[in-house]
Design a protein around this nucleic acid. Sequence first.
DNA 1: CGCCCAATTGATAGTTGTCAATACACGTGG
DNA 2: CCACGTGTATTGACAACTATCAATTGGGCG
Lengths: 256, 256
Amino acid sequence: MQLQNFPTTGAAHATAPYSPTLQPVRHQRHVCESSTLSDVMALLRFDGRTGTSAQGQAFRHQRVRSGQSVFAMGQPFNGLYVVRSGSLKSVVTHDDGNDNVISFHMKGDLLGCDGVYKKHYGCETVALTDSEVIRLPADEFFSPTRRCDDMEHMLYWAISREITREQASYTVSHAPRSEVRVARFLLQQSECFAAMGCSPRRFTLTMTRRDIGNYLSVTLETVSRALSLLNHLGIIEISNRDVTLLDADALRAYEG
Amino acid sequence: MQLQNFPTTGAAHATAPYSPTLQPVRHQRHVCESSTLSDVMALLRFDGRTGTSAQGQAFRHQRVRSGQSVFAMGQPFNGLYVVRSGSLKSVVTHDDGNDNVISFHMKGDLLGCDGVYKKHYGCETVALTDSEVIRLPADEFFSPTRRCDDMEHMLYWAISREITREQASYTVSHAPRSEVRVARFLLQQSECFAAMGCSPRRFTLTMTRRDIGNYLSVTLETVSRALSLLNHLGIIEISNRDVTLLDADALRAYEG
DNA sequence: CGCCCAATTGATAGTTGTCAATACACGTGG
DNA sequence: CCACGTGTATTGACAACTATCAATTGGGCG
């Protein structure tokens, strides 16, 4: 459906701020910085020893504007991506037109893990805010001639981490009551911000109520009501997308 | 909660009355057969070329009786497991005592993928029927001295496949209506059986209504009602755990 | 400033969960 | 071999929750 790089049909970002239809990319400035393998390891929070091979290699950064996608569903697999900054969501679209938000991503997350298997991306990952990602080219770690280096261990580890995350998400989106789902979602977000070095107590949601609802498998109205309720209970304070967790323990203990 | 190795404590099997024999597990004695890397590749349906290294290696088979677990949640990671026969479920247990069935497994599936990340298994995998698994020891593919062989590519690929599966499961368990979830669950099971070379039209469910409901995030009564409805509609025929898909297309098209 | 979409809130209908009773299947023990 | 017990599965009635429809407010961006 659309591409992630380069020059474009100029039309750009105007039409639908929150739509599933993705926009072409606005012309990006060619100031692409780059990272070394060590940088990437640090970003992923991988604590393995620094490798000897592929050490001098530079991975270019790539900007993705809000609403743009890093890769589209079904697109040929061309590598994994590490989030350097910003916020994104992964969406699976079905034959019938419905779609599911399966995860949200932040700094340090690995994108495109499902592409390794079928050589095509199984979902579309869209930026919720202007973001920066680092591509780890597929041929770097799938070339038959490539050396056996630390990048490989790192990717094993990171892919496994993504599985762990999906399992954690399962808990969130399968809570019996909608308010509990929303409560756990907020805690999940809080932890993500904490892992990024931001405040786990005060943060700004990057996604719409609709996205949250889609992710939690409830309607956007239900999300709104749940947030209002938690607000009235004094457990959180919420204004639009700005959240303050007034009582994180109460939020954790909340079971309806 | 349970052990993964036999010589069993004799009792073991007693608690699981329903053991629809998926496949004829003839009484195996304590001879543990073993598989080569090529065998494992074939089991996983990995179509890569056969490697040169680690080729002579033998992976021992391991029996798991119905109700026993292959590994427990939180247990130190000691390798990945490939299902050779039988049927299993993976369960995450929470602090509050609640648990979630996050997936069902059959022949050719890879177990324990979430253990790579934290060096501990993130879930417990329990046999629903007497099963056989093959352990791929952790040190085989994480040893710093190990050669870069095909096993590595295979595991990448297989772990990625598990992620794809989890995403597919998302679709199933997040359908808006319960009957649609059940319908999709049956189709999912059908495909699993087909992939195993069994009939996709007639098969026997290996799990309880409670397990299905837990997996789909609905109550067991709702599962039962949904199955009864599909039965009355003439789309399926179900008696206890024996299912016949009378009209698979109608099942696919079913949206309530 | 004005438009478009996001978000909140209310009223109502529909689906699902809960509680309960019964029938059924399987393994055990007489 | 059959009766029995335990846990599974089905079905009903009712309460509770959530989706839907609708109207309004508020925020962001051109």
